[in-house]
């Protein structure tokens, strides 16, 4: 990666760690993260399992919007490709998951909306944008698959996987101080759009 102001971050993150991050920072993530996409979000939001009912400690971790390709050989799981999925689909759920489970980062692609931005600020959490479509590039930064939850019920794509990652790259695009790079880009593009269509 051709980079500028990079910082390594180690999980689990504390609130102080999160407050030191700002929109525009590039980070390399190290430690244990969990995946969750549409079904995990729907489940956590509607069924509200207690922290004890979830086999992973979500405090301080990053919830990665990802539905990986994983191959099972014997008892082992091998990650083939694991880039991000579009985050906005879980916008209606994310604010509650951030406040209930103590996660300190949400990672995906495309950015999220106002509800999530507020929840990031209220709870001390960041949104990390990683490289959409870079399935193998990112899979190569996952050292190992630690465990999985809800595999039978949700299937490989929708299960919650725990990955140990090493120097996994992402850009902070929404921070805990209420700043969102997406808002700025959207606003600018809206003005340009209006000009181009003569509105």
């Amino acid at each position: 990666m051709n980079v500028k102001n990079i910082q390594r971050i180690n999980l689990p993150l504390t609130k102080e760690d999160v407050l030191s991050l700002h929109a525009g920072d590039i980070v390399l993530i190290n430690g244990l993260i969990v995946t969750g996409r549409d079904r995990v979000h729907n489940f956590l939001f509607n069924k509200k399992p207690s922290k004890k009912q979830i086999p992973f400690n979500l405090e301080g971790t990053i919830l990665y919007h990802c539905g990986p390709i994983i191959r099972k050989t014997g008892k082992d799981f091998k990650l083939i490709a694991g880039g991000p999925t579009t985050s906005i689909r879980v916008e209606m759920y994310e604010h509650q998951i951030i406040s209930e489970y103590g996660i300190r980062g949400v990672m995906g692609k495309g950015g999220m909306g106002e509800q999530t931005l507020n929840a990031l600020k209220e709870n001390g959490c960041v949104y990390l944008h990683t490289i959409g479509g870079a399935g193998v590039y990112l899979a190569d930064r996952v050292k190992r698959i630690v465990d999985v939850w809800k595999l039978e019920e949700f299937g490989v794509t929708e299960a919650m996987w725990m990955f140990e990652v090493e120097n996994f790259p992402a850009i902070v695009t929404m921070d805990a101080h209420g700043r969102s790079l997406h808002e700025g880009i959207e606003k600018k593009s809206y003005n340009e759009f209006k000009r181009l269509i003569g509105l």
Partner: peptide, 21 residues
């Protein structure tokens, strides 16, 4: 640059370039 690197690795290792096939 990450996208171009990803394209190279996928071709070399014959893995799907994106997990969403």
């Amino acid at each position: 640059s990450a996208i171009l690197e990803n394209i190279r690795i996928a071709k070399e290792t014959q893995r799907p370039m994106c997990q969403d096939t």
